[in-house]
Design a protein around this nucleic acid. Structure first.
Length: 297
DNA sequence: CGTTGATCCTGGGCGC
DNA sequence: TGCGCCCAGGATCAAC
C-alpha cells in the first residue's frame, strides 16, 4: 500500500505536529520490525531528544532527532498514526460506535509494534499486520543518511532536481527487463510501487510487458512525465486506500476513486471503454488497457 | 552485472 | 458455519 504518495501524505500529516516535540520514550513490542543494527540498545539513546524535522526519501520516512535518525519503512501494511489519548474518540476503537460517532484514531492493538510517547502526551504508533515494515535507527553523523539510501539502492527522487530527463534517460542503460519490473525497481525511480507503476504506464500509453530496451526517446519522455503526474495526483487526493492505508490521523485517502487501471479489471477504460485487462508480471498483479497501451508501438 | 523467483507475515474473501 | 485455498500495495537475496 504505502508508496511515495502515501508516505508523503503521512509525512505532511506528522511534520507540523512532531517538529519541536521531544521523544519522551520509545517501546518496541515486536523486535522483528526493528533493523538488526538497532537491536543492541541504541533505542534508549533516542529518549529525551528533540524532533527537528520529518522528511522522506522514496518510501522511507525519516524523523530527524538531535543526534539520531529514526527511519520508518511501512512495507505492505504499515501504519504510522498520531494518537491523542485525551481526545474524545480515543478509546472508541475498542468499542462499538453508534450514530454519528467516528473513530479516526488507532488505539494500540496486537499489531502495534512500536509505541512512542511524545513530550505533549500524544503517541506515535507504528502498526503493521504483515510485519514487512522496518524501523531503523542511525547516528546522525554526516553521510550516514546518504549511505543508508545507497545501501537500499534508491534511485531518482521525484519532485527534486534529481529527477530530470537526462538522469531518467541514463537510468535506462543496460536495462532489458519489462517496463513493469523496471518501475517496481527502487534503484530506477524511488517511491513507485505496484499501483502507481500501473497508473504511470497507462498515463504514458505504454504496455507493461514491453522491454525497457525497446522504447523510443519520445516514449521515455512520456513515461518521465507520467510518473510525476500520477504521483502528484496521489498526493493531491491523500493517498490510495485499498485496504490498509490510513494517514497520520487514521483516515483513509481518496485516490482509489481516481485510478484509471489499478483494481479495475473487466471495467471499461475511462478513455476508450475497452475492458481493463489484468495479468501477472514478475509475480505482481498488473492492470492495463489493451487499446490505450498497445503491445507494439 | 542484470534479472528472476522464492521468501518473509497475517488477514480477508471466496468456493465448497 | 467452517475449512482450505488464493490473494494482497514490498524488498531482499540466492542462483542463473
Amino acid at each position: 500500500m504505502p508508496e511515495l504518495p502515501e508516505v508523503e501524505t503521512i509525512r505532511r500529516g506528522l511534520e507540523p505536529h512532531l517538529t519541536g516535540l521531544t521523544l519522551q520514550s520509545l517501546a518496541v513490542t515486536d523486535h522483528k520490525v526493528l533493523d538488526i543494527s538497532a537491536r543492541d540498545g541504541k533505542l534508549s539513546a533516542l529518549e529525551g531528544q528533540r524532533i527537528e524535522a520529518v522528511t522522506r526519501r522514496g518510501k522511507y520516512l525519516v524523523v530527524a532527532l538531535e543526534r539520531h535518525y529514526l527511519i520508518f519503512h511501512l512495507g505492505m501494511t504499515g501504519q504510522l498514526t498520531l494518537r491523542d489519548p485525551a481526545r474524545a474518540d480515543a478509546e472508541s476503537f475498542e468499542r462499538t460506535l453508534t450514530g454519528l460517532e467516528r473513530c479516526d484514531q488507532h488505539a494500540p492493538d496486537r499489531h502495534t509494534h512500536v509505541h512512542i510517547l511524545l513530550g505533549d502526551g500524544r503517541q506515535l504508533l507504528f502498526r503493521d499486520i504483515r510485519k514487512f515494515g522496518r524501523v531503523y535507527v542511525l547516528e546522525r553523523a554526516s553521510e550516514q543518511l546518504f549511505a543508508f539510501f545507497r545501501l537500499h539502492h534508491l534511485g531518482l527522487e521525484p519532485f527534486t532536481s534529481d529527477y530530470n530527463l537526462r538522469a531518467f534517460l541514463a537510468a535506462f542503460r543496460n536495462r532489458t527487463l519489462r517496463l513493469k519490473s523496471l518501475l517496481l525497481n527502487q534503484a530506477f525511480v524511488a517511491g513507485v510501487g505496484n499501483i502507481y507503476a500501473d497508473e504511470a504506464l497507462f498515463e504514458a500509453g505504454l504496455h507493461p510487458a514491453r522491454k525497457a530496451s525497446g522504447l523510443r526517446r519520445a516514449e521515455k519522455e512520456r513515461l518521465f512525465s507520467a510518473i510525476q503526474t500520477v504521483l502528484e495526483r496521489g498526493i493531491e487526493f491523500g493517498g490510495t486506500s485499498f485496504r490498509d492505508f490510513v494517514n497520520s490521523e487514521g483516515e483513509k485517502g481518496a485516490n482509489q476513486e481516481e485510478l484509471y487501471v489499478y483494481g479495475r479489471e473487466g471495467e471499461p477504460c475511462l478513455k476508450c471503454q475497452t475492458p481493463i485487462v489484468k495479468t501477472v508480471i514478475s509475480q505482481r498483479g498488473t492492470h492495463f488497457c489493451p487499446k490505450c497501451q498497445p503491445r507494439r508501438r
